[in-house]
Nucleic acid binder design. Structure first.
Lengths: 172, 172, 172, 172
DNA sequence: TTTT
DNA sequence: TTTT
């Protein structure tokens, strides 16, 4: 019965985030690709070598909005999520499977790199954080690594209902 | 500004859980010791060796109640939490520091071992999980490794919103 | 340049391990499927719900041999590995991608559940763990969760050197 | 018997690394303090709050040398290690306990932040990474996120000898 | 003080 | 003592 499904990645966005999509529940969804590079030295030749792995990341909820707003191609992030393999079909009706790392309210996203990221100019994120959060926030009295104007997100993107004052100020 | 503080342990309880204590906020608090054992073979002698590390775990909120109710000396668990070092004083006024692994609503506890654990007989946990959960739970439509009758707990809905008297009240 | 790619799972084997395969380097390779189940209570209906995720795990090296020898359908394990997406082609020449969790010498496998597992009867693993270990082990004086007679494996000393024909030889 | 003891931190060095020390085995040892900061917004007051946790980190082996050479006060790093509580005595003979995060060859250290770190000027680390690595590195044929010119280190500092053909062909 |  |  016990089950643990956890992924931890540090890498860089392969491209600017695409447009936000929304689930029927109202939660935002955003897909990005993340590159994690490992490097080592070839023992035989002494050469430095590296291998890059590309991951499909799916941000759900508040975090999706933060990613859209603050991150761009090349941004370095820390991500905690879980594995999920989706089955889908080609237009020809063939089954296909895609494995993604889902970062929802049980996951975490942290921006790395120090330098202050700027919100994407011309951001098309017509998102009323205020209202959205109200309905879904974590319960009152819950600490949360909430960064507010700071572009970082820890266990956000979810509802855990709360005091109205909480959500008013914290955009995720 | 980014910060990650995460501890993952699998080990066995060193003793039956003590009594639950409560914070002013109403959140339950429970301390246990957890042993993690690593084994290896001494390369020189070929002998099998092992080393046991003892960890002070502090469960806060719903998880504390589950631990109290279902776990006992020897129970094997998986735990996700964060490090916290508390300063306290001896009766003589000397400073002391104790490092603990805090498992609150952002952490996780999973019972391992398969065999169905029995609730502690004579349990003094007058706790209506259902009602409690309903009132503070994560938002609808969100999966959660909810404990309820099941002796497992993942990011349960608990508060530990904090009064400034936290440390004063809880002499771990 | 920094990169972290880490997966942590606790789940149960979906079937007995298949046969060991070997890379040109001599390293064993073993594929298994692992189910991680998450349970939660539907907030709206109050019903208990669960979702099982199936993961493709690839054990490489010493750990592969231990898994083959000690684990079977239903065995509960803890696994630490990394994500890797492989590209392969159908007989028709179409590209396909499969994401796996690779557990090599940088990963870890721990058996859970307490009850003593028995080596698979009729095990065809003619493997001298002792000798193997001696020759390739980590440096003296270094602890290591050595497997040997003990059915546990943490970053064991294994190779998985390979040839360019890796994918060809190993039809996961 | 299973045991997992793992700590994952992202934070900043509180000070420049002190001098390297060496164990009888020849392994370098280096202690640093690392700050991890979590921020959240106070639900009652709406104020942004933060709490910083200070961790005692002990780097052992190759990683210790890399930290000494490349990191300084304020450097942001990712660290994977394990918890260890040491008992020691005051001059008066009183027992004291200190909990540290040990980052040895089973752990990992990654520099974050992007900006190219400069080796400490006037570095007193007369360390020939190349030669040193050869002598103590992981065994041939094993990939390793080798640091060398690159200021990153993943599970290095250990041997685990292997096939010489490994690195040539398989980049993972 | 656990567990194997 | 870091960082934002």
């Amino acid at each position: 019965m016990a089950g643990v499904n956890r992924v931890i990645l540090i890498g860089n966005l392969g491209a600017d985030p695409a447009e936000l999509r929304y689930m029927p529940s109202g939660d935002a969804v955003l897909n990005v690709t993340l590159a994690t590079t490992e490097t080592w030295k070839d023992r035989a030749t002494g050469e430095k070598r590296e291998r890059t792995e590309w991951h499909k990341i799916v941000f759900i909820g508040k975090t999706a909005e933060i990613v859209k707003q603050y991150l761009h191609k090349g941004s370095q992030i820390y991500v905690e999520g879980k594995l999920r393999t989706r089955k889908w079909q080609t237009p020809e009706g063939q089954d296909r499977y895609t494995t993604e790392v889902v970062v929802d309210s049980f996951g975490t996203m942290q921006m790395l790199g120090g330098r202050q990221e700027q919100p994407s100019s011309g951001s098309s994120v017509p998102f009323d954080e205020e209202a959205h959060y109200q309905g879904q926030g974590r319960p009152a009295g819950r600490p949360q690594t909430a960064p507010a104007p700071a572009p970082s997100s820890s266990a956000p993107a979810s509802n855990y209902g709360g005091s109205s004052t909480y959500d008013d100020d914290i955009p995720f």
